[in-house]
């Protein structure tokens, strides 16, 4: 479990941790749009500076961000190569019998991979500094208006929160079943990929069955605690915008103005 880095919360008390999750979520969302207006070296410099500034503020080790980049590294390299080879324009930098590399291609490759990197790092910043429970709350509140068009916002948020609560429980159970099957002579380690996948069937079937039983019992327990959907429900968790959350708007506007001014 420790190998999964994307989406993992790193408890801490930095200023980024203390922003309201809704403010952070909105900021990152809008930031993703802003990235697409960045189109020359000076604007990319501004964005890179900003991202590094945020990483510094978060007090989270760089190594962890590298960990979250790893899974998308292949996509970044692949698209970079495509851009290097396919884009034409500007002076020729390198000629081989198979392809020609133009100045424009290098530029495009650098920009596109920068864009990818920044997207991944910002998304990781959000999940590293926000607990999944806070994120769920933020989503529920931000999507609140969708209730008018009959989107079951409360139910979706509750589903997410129950899923989060049961991930460790199901994980433990998977380990238990795995050990039980190993003790019965199951072979999970050898053979080709197809063989290994089929070897996992005796683990997943009991896991599914017990999950269904859990779900049924949980539904009973919830009903016994007077749950009847969102009607007349109060909320214990309270999100409050503070002055620093409004600062995010100012920061975002400054970024917009800066990029609008510098972009070509």
């Amino acid at each position: 479990m420790s190998r999964i880095v994307i989406g993992q919360f790193m408890p801490g008390n930095s200023i980024l941790h203390r922003f309201d999750p809704r403010a952070k979520l909105l900021f990152v969302f809008l930031f993703f749009f802003l990235i697409f207006f960045v189109n020359n070296i000076s604007t990319y410099l501004v964005i890179y500076l900003f991202v590094f500034f945020c990483i510094g503020l978060s007090q989270i080790r760089i190594r962890l961000f590298l960990g979250s980049i790893k899974p998308v590294l292949f996509i970044i390299i692949f698209t970079s190569i495509l851009h290097l080879v396919m884009t034409k324009g500007g002076t020729i930098l390198l000629t081989t019998p198979f392809f020609t590399v133009y100045e424009e291609g290098v530029r495009q490759a650098a920009f596109i991979s920068s864009r990818f990197l920044i997207l991944v790092v910002m998304a990781s910043l959000l999940t590293f500094t926000t607990s999944s429970l806070d994120l769920t709350d933020a989503l529920e509140q931000l999507m609140g208006p969708l209730r008018k068009i009959r989107v079951p916002v409360h139910e979706l948020a509750l589903m997410m929160s129950i899923a989060l609560r049961f991930i460790p429980t199901l994980w433990e159970e998977t380990e238990k079943i795995k050990n039980a099957q190993l003790a019965r002579g199951a072979n999970l380690e050898s053979g080709n990929i197809f063989k290994r996948l089929t070897a996992y069937i005796p683990i997943f079937i009991p896991l599914f069955l017990s999950s269904f039983r859990r779900a049924e019992e949980l539904a009973m327990a919830m009903e016994a605690r007077a749950y009847r959907g969102g009607i007349g429900r109060t909320k214990f968790r309270l999100l409050e915008y503070k002055r620093k959350d409004y600062m995010l708007i100012v920061i975002f506007l400054l970024l917009v103005i800066g990029i609008g001014w510098l972009r070509s």
Partner: peptide, 26 residues
């Protein structure tokens, strides 16, 4: 089953669950 009656991901939130359903003030 102690596991299958806890709804929320933390002790505080789970205690609050029943009260939220009843509409108790914060």
């Amino acid at each position: 089953n102690p596991d299958n009656q806890i709804v929320a991901p933390s002790v505080l939130d789970d205690i609050a669950f029943g009260m939220e359903n009843l509409g108790v003030t914060r």
